[in-house]
């Protein structure tokens, strides 16, 4: 079988395992809720992660430009960047995909390695892991920026009123 077809065929199983692996990083009660509740507004975390993973996996297998995967990656990491996770836990889910793919391919792994398809795919996963790191840092920096901006927003009018700051008039 053409290696690409086999991976496509295995895609639902890979997605399912990958999704469950990520959700199992949450406490048991939470994990059950995140998996079970399908309404996207009642369960925005589960929904966003699932939808994002589906898109990432599809794009990875189809060879889509990695930049086009960034929004889906951002949606997931933006959530995990503000949860009770260490930085490695927050972005590590990308790397777990390699193991899952190899396990799903089973005895066909060697064939896929030889064709160069699997190493190519794994390189792209590594690149996504690096992108995840960038996104994670952007999210964390944003948290600090929000704190600073909020202080400015709270005090700017008062400073203006007290004549401690002024703006130059428009030319």
């Amino acid at each position: 079988m053409d290696p690409r077809n086999l991976l496509s065929e295995k895609r639902p199983a890979i997605l399912n395992r990958w999704f469950n692996a990520v959700l199992d990083t949450y406490p048991a009660d939470t994990s059950a809720f995140l998996k079970k509740q399908k309404n996207q507004f009642a369960n925005p975390v589960g929904h966003t992660i699932h939808q994002g993973m589906e898109h990432i996996l599809e794009a990875l297998l189809q060879g889509t430009d990695l930049d086009r995967i960034a929004p889906s990656l951002d949606n997931i990491i933006r959530i995990r960047a503000v949860q009770d996770l260490t930085p490695s836990q927050a972005v590590g889910f990308i790397l777990s995909l390699k193991k899952i793919i190899r396990e799903e391919l089973g005895s066909n792994t060697r064939e896929h390695s030889a064709s160069g398809e699997l190493p190519g795919l794994e390189e792209r996963i590594d690149a996504l892991a690096l992108m995840s790191f960038d996104i994670y840092i952007q999210c964390r920096e944003k948290i600090y920026e929000l704190r600073a901006n909020e202080t400015k927003r709270l005090t700017y009018r008062l400073l203006q009123r007290a004549n401690l700051v002024c703006e130059l008039p428009d030319q």
């Binding site: 406490p27 009660d29 939470t30 509740q37 009642a42 975390v45 949860q83 009770d84």
Partner: peptide
């Protein structure tokens, strides 16, 4: 009530149920 709290939904921390 368990899954109706915005803090639980957003954090996944069971003590926010």
């Amino acid at each position: 009530c368990a899954d109706k709290c915005h803090f639980f939904i957003g954090s996944g921390d069971p003590k926010n149920m």
